[in-house]
Every structure is written in structure tokens, then in C-alpha cells.
């Protein structure tokens, strides 16, 4: 069915009305989830992911503690209703295990684990809706959730998917496009502009790969701006709330002075 839909039409528009380099609407929500130390939900178009972070805390199993740094534990759950074909994936599915280990190894060097010896940081990833770019959404959500939990990070990690359709590179693919095109997920660390994750599973010519890698690097910078704005706003809200507390006590003192 998908072959009948034009991926990129003559006017330069994609099947959902976007241009080649246009990203889908992004929603970053850092609202606190009760119980978790930090959480974030991220939506890229219809793809929606929620990540909760617990810790740094004492490890449940003593065998998992590492004497000089924190152990990071990532668990990924994919909701059965997140895709078109409702399929239950078992916890031991190799694809999900690989997905979790990809997220884990991406964040291991970014989190300053040496500050928390003998402790554990749990990252629970829930994929609620899938419409392409699941890895990208999971990585962006994990960055925000960790920031929300107050875990010290060396830098943001901003991920984006890119694909190539008949020599025309495109960004932020939907499921429809992912099924038809070779695609790459790239995660960048915006401070240095270096890539920390590159993941590709489909066949692509080396020259095209080069093009898409550079493009995705730039797009990562754009996503970083959005993410940073959300983190700043959230922090500002928290600081204001703290200030508000101080101010009320100031008022109380003023009132007392006025009374006497």
C-alpha cells in the first residue's frame, strides 16, 4: 500500500505535507511524575515516549554495584497498542534488549557516573506511540528526564533520524517513510558537535551516508535549541517558585513590622 503513496512529490512536499528538511512538531514535557525522581515525555509528531528516571539510589541487587561509579540500568517497554499491528512483545525480545543496551551505552559516558559510586540510576523508557523515529524520541526523552532528575550530565544528547529518497536527503521520518527508505539515527552532543550514536540497519551508499550524517548533525543542533529552551523554562519555574516562598516570608516580616 505504501508504495502507492509518493514519498516526495514533484513540488518537494512529503506525504504529510512537510518539506525535505522540515522536522515534525516537537513537544517536550518535563512535568514531574509522582514517584519518579525525574521524568519527561517527548513527542515527535505522532511518536510519543515517556521516560522516568529513579536514582541515583542504592542498587536493588548488591551484585550490580560498581565500586567506583554508578551503574545505569535501562528498561524499555513498548506498549502493544503503540503500532498499527497490535503485537505483544515479550520482555526478552532481542530487539528490545538491543534497544535498551543502545540507550544505556549512549548515556554511560554522558552521565557523570563517577560522582555516585556504588549506586544505581534506573531509566525506564515507555514507548506509547510509534510513528517513526522511536530511537530518536527515546534518546531525547532520556536526556530531558535525566536533566529533570538533577543527574549531572556532560552535555545534552540530541538525536534525529535522516533518510534518503532517490538521492534527496530527508529528516525526521515517519513510519511510512522508514518502511520505504534507508534511514540513519544520529545523536549529537551539541557542545562539541560530535556524534555519539550512529545507528543504521538498512542498505545505503557510502556517499549518501556522508550527506545524511552531516545534515543530521545540523538538525541535532536545532533540536538542542528546543530542548534547552524547555529545560531553562522548567528551571526558571522552579527558581521562581523558590523565590516566591522567600517573598511570602518577607511579606510576613513586613506585616509584623507594620503591626508593631
Amino acid at each position: 500500500m505504501s508504495s502507492r503513496i509518493e514519498i516526495l512529490n514533484d513540488g518537494g512536499f512529503r506525504s504529510d505535507g512537510r518539506r525535505q528538511y522540515e522536522l515534525r512538531e516537537m513537544t517536550f514535557d518535563m512535568a514531574e511524575q509522582a514517584g519518579a525522581d525525574g521524568s519527561a515525555s517527548v513527542a515527535h509528531g505522532l511518536t510519543q515516549v515517556r521516560v522516568s528516571v529513579f536514582g541515583p539510589r542504592e542498587a536493588k541487587m548488591r551484585s550490580q554495584t560498581i565500586h567506583d561509579r554508578a551503574n545505569i540500568n535501562v528498561e524499555v517497554g513498548i506498549a502493544p497498542f503503540s503500532t498499527g499491528d497490535r503485537r505483544k512483545r515479550s520482555k526478552g525480545d532481542k530487539r528490545i534488549l538491543e534497544f535498551a543496551s543502545t540507550i544505556k551505552s549512549t548515556f554511560e559516558p554522558v552521565i557523570q557516573t563517577a560522582l555516585y559510586p556504588r549506586s544505581q540510576i534506573d531509566i525506564f523508557v515507555h514507548v506509547l506511540q510509534q510513528d517513526g523515529g522511536v530511537l530518536q524520541a527515546c534518546i531525547n526523552a532520556t536526556t530531558l528526564a535525566l536533566a529533570n532528575a538533577g543527574v549531572p550530565l556532560l552535555d545534552f544528547v540530541c538525536a534525529v533520524t535522516g533518510g534518503v529518497h532517490a538521492a534527496a536527503p530527508m529528516l525526521d521520518l515517519t513510519t511510512l517513510e522508514e518502511n520505504d527508505l534507508p534511514h540513519v539515527t544520529v545523536a549529537v552532543m551539541p557542545r562539541t558537535g560530535r556524534v555519539t550514536l550512529v545507528s543504521m540497519e538498512t542498505r545505503l551508499h557510502v556517499d549518501r551516508f556522508e550527506e545524511i550524517l552531516r545534515l543530521a548533525g545540523q538538525a541535532g543542533g536545532v533540536i538542542h535549541k528546543e530542548m534547552r529552551a524547555v529545560v531553562r523554562e522548567r528551571t526558571k519555574g522552579l527558581v521562581d517558585a523558590m523565590g516566591a516562598g522567600v517573598r511570602t516570608s518577607d511579606f510576613a516580616e513586613d506585616a509584623m513590622v507594620a503591626d508593631s
Partner: peptide
Amino acid sequence: QRELCVVHKAGGVPLTPEEVL
């Protein structure tokens, strides 16, 4: 035939795009 089939780099030392290429 110069076609990449799998690229997998997760975490570790970050590289510049030039180094990857």
C-alpha cells in the same frame, strides 16, 4: 559495492562526522 548495510556506534568516545567518515 560501497554500500553500507549496518552502522552501529552507541556511546563511547564521541566522534566528529569527519572521523566517522
